[in-house]
């Protein structure tokens, strides 16, 4: 009798876990900075990101639409056009005054990066790339020091 109860409860537990998994939203990297959360793929708005210091456009060789880059004091945001909207594709750190949500900044050590993000990365030459869903967090390391940090949306 006791064994049957344990079996039924275990089965119920498994079912609940299964239901919970179905509702889990795919994880992604997002930047928390000055009490705001900046998410890759979100619609870019100046209300949220503020007035840029400078702005540049890069067109493709043949296709319509422009990649627009907005430069702020500590980071740069590149957007891409889709269905008439401008969405955030890249957030690139410009200096040491800004750190990732997990606490890594330019000039930190490779060891700190490994402590914070672990070893589940893809390495290409001097670039370490971590992936969550369709977002990438890329670090370029030179002489055991992080010299570049970039959030990138896989489009």
């Amino acid at each position: 009798m006791k064994l049957r109860k344990i079996f039924i409860l275990s089965l119920l537990g498994l079912c609940l876990l299964g239901c919970e998994n179905k509702e889990t939203v795919e994880e992604s990297f997002a930047l928390k900075y000055q009490n705001q959360t900046f998410t890759l793929g979100e619609v870019f708005s100046k209300e949220k990101y503020g007035e840029e210091l400078s702005y540049s456009e890069v067109s493709s060789c043949a296709f319509e639409g422009l990649d627009k880059t907005y430069r702020y004091s500590d980071f740069e945001v590149t957007t891409y056009p889709i269905d008439g909207e401008e969405k955030v594709a890249v957030i690139y750190f410009l200096d040491e005054n800004i750190e990732t949500t997990e606490g890594l900044k330019i000039s930190d050590s490779l060891q700190k990066m490994l402590d914070l993000y672990g070893t589940d990365y893809q390495k290409e030459d001097t670039m370490y790339q971590y992936q969550k869903g369709n977002t990438l967090l890329k670090f370029i390391v030179s002489n055991d020091t992080v010299i570049s940090i970039e959030y990138v949306l896989e489009i």
Binding site: S54, Y55, S56, V58, T69, R71, E76, T78, Y92, L94, E124, D125, T126, M127, I140, S142, I147, S148, E150
Partner: peptide
């Protein structure tokens, strides 16, 4: 010409 995005360090 106005400006371009910041130059990224080369990985290779």
């Amino acid at each position: 010409y106005t400006s371009f995005p910041t130059e990224r360090p080369l990985t290779q």
